[in-house]
Design a protein around this nucleic acid. Structure first.
Lengths: 218, 218
DNA sequence: GAAAATGGTTAAGAATTTGTTAAAATTTTG
DNA sequence: CAAAATTTTAACAAATTCTTAACCATTTTC
C-alpha cells in the first residue's frame, strides 16, 4: 500500500484530505509544518508528498528543494502562474490549486505513483524474460510456470534491476493485508523460484543481501 | 536535445507552440491528427508528447491508451474535471487547459523531462561512493561488501562529511534498542570497515576524534 | 612519568538471518 | 464439494554477522 505524507497546517483541510486518501486505500502520514515534514521524512520513507505552500516556519519552496527522493504535489491557494512555475522548477512534480476536485486530486496522485514506463513491456534481464500474463517466465525462451506470488516477486526484482528490494517491500506484494506477515514465507517463495530456475540455467539470478532483502545479480 | 511531438490540428495554435518550444531549445515533431501521431511515434523516438484532445479521426483518450512509452501532456480546451480524470487515468502525465501560460507550459514540460529521481543516488567522498539503493560501497569503482551495520555507519559518516559523529549517535544505529550497548562493538565495526577498505586503497578514511566519535578525513 | 582512560585489533562463540524440506492450511478449480 | 494447486507454517541446518572479552597501543591526567 502506498504511503502519502500530508503537509498542511490548516487542521480542517488536513483532515479532509486525510479522510479522502484513507478511503481510497492510501496510508497517510501527517505533518503540520515544514520542519515536521522534514523530520518525518528522515525517519520513514513515503511514496508521495502533498504539500501546502503557506506553512508556518520554513517556506514551501525551501522544502521542495530539500526533498529530492520523494515526488511532490503542491496543493496551494496561490493561483498565480509565477508561483506554479517556481514550485515546478524547484522540483515539484505537480501543482494543484485550491479548491481542488477530489477526483482530480486522486487521478494526479495516481499519475505520480504510476511506475515509470515499465508498462506493458515484457521485462528482460540476461536470459530471463517475464511475460505480462502473470505467470510465465522465459529462460532462454523456455517456458517456466510461476505461481502468482512467484511472478509478483520476480516482477518487482526485474523492474528494479539495479536496486535491492527490501524484504518488507516484497512482503507487501505477498501478504494480502497483514502487516506482520511472515518473512519465512518469502524465503520459501524465493527458494522455490530458485529451484524452478535451476532446471533451465546454471546461473544464479537472485542474490540475497543479508539483513536487507534481495536483488538480481549483476 | 529533447524532442517533443506536437499533436494539434489547429494550425495557428500548432505553430505558436512550435515556435515557443524551438525558442526554448527543444526539437519538435509535428502531427495534425492522431493517426499521424501514431505513425510518427513508430518511426522515431520522442521524449514527450503534447496532445490536443479534439482531433480529427481517433479520439484523444484512445491515443493515450496506445502510447505507453512516452510521457504525455494533454493540452485541451476541455476544462471539466471529468475529462482531466479520464485522461490522467488513461495514462496521461499532465493535463493543461487552454489558454495556457507559456511559462507554466515550459515548467510542466521540464517536470516531465526531468530525470526520474536519481535511483542510483550516491553519497560520494573522494574515492568512496556509497550506492544508496544497492547497499554497496565502491572504492575507485571496485565493489566492497559491507554488512548492514557497516553500511549504516558509513552512510552516517558520508552524510555528514564535515561533522564529527558522536559515538552515541553511531551506537543508535547499531543497537536495536538498548541504551547501554557496548562501545566496544562499535570499535570493532569501525576496525572491520577500515580493514576492508585497506584492500582497495592506501588512504585512511575514518578519523577518530578522541573522546567524541568519528569523522571522515578531509 | 605512572596511572587512568580511551582507542584498535583479534578471535571465539552467541545471536541472527537465510535456505531447504515437508507437512498443514488455505485458496482455487473443475 | 472434492481434488489440485498454492501459500503458510514449522523445524532444522547452514551461513553470516554481531558481541564479547582479552590484550596491547595511545592519549590524557595528575
Amino acid at each position: 500500500m502506498n504511503k502519502i505524507l500530508i503537509v498542511e497546517d490548516d487542521v480542517s483541510i488536513h483532515s479532509i484530505i486525510e479522510e479522502l486518501l484513507n478511503k481510497n486505500n492510501y496510508t497517510t502520514g501527517n505533518a503540520y509544518s515544514g520542519t515536521e515534514a522534514l523530520m518525518l521524512l528522515e525517519k520513514e520513507k513515503y511514496d508521495l508528498i502533498l504539500l501546502d505552500l503557506m506553512l508556518p516556519g520554513i517556506n514551501g519552496e525551501e522544502i521542495i528543494k530539500k526533498i529530492k527522493e520523494t515526488p511532490i504535489i503542491v496543493l496551494s491557494a496561490k493561483i498565480s502562474s509565477e508561483d506554479k512555475v517556481n514550485c515546478l522548477l524547484s522540483g515539484a512534480n505537480d501543482y494543484i490549486t485550491k479548491p481542488f476536485d477530489n477526483k482530480e486530486l486522486l487521478a494526479r496522485i495516481e499519475v505520480q505513483l504510476r511506475p515509470k514506463e515499465n508498462y506493458q513491456k515484457t521485462l528482460k534481464h540476461k536470459e530471463l524474460e517475464l511475460l505480462n500474463d502473470n505467470h510465465t517466465l522465459l529462460i532462454s525462451n523456455q517456458k517456466v510456470n510461476l505461481t502468482k506470488t512467484e511472478y509478483a516477486i520476480l516482477k518487482q526484482l526485474l523492474q528494479n534491476q539495479l536496486q535491492v528490494i527490501t524484504k518488507n517491500k516484497l512482503l507487501e506484494l505477498i501478504s494480502t493485508d497483514t502487516e506482520d506477515c511472515d518473512e519465512n514465507s518469502l524465503r520459501v517463495h524465493i527458494s522455490n523460484i530458485r529451484k524452478k530456475m535451476k532446471h533451465y540455467t546454471d546461473q544464479e539470478y537472485i542474490e540475497s543481501i543479508w539483513g536487507i532483502g534481495f536483488k538480481l545479480k549483476d
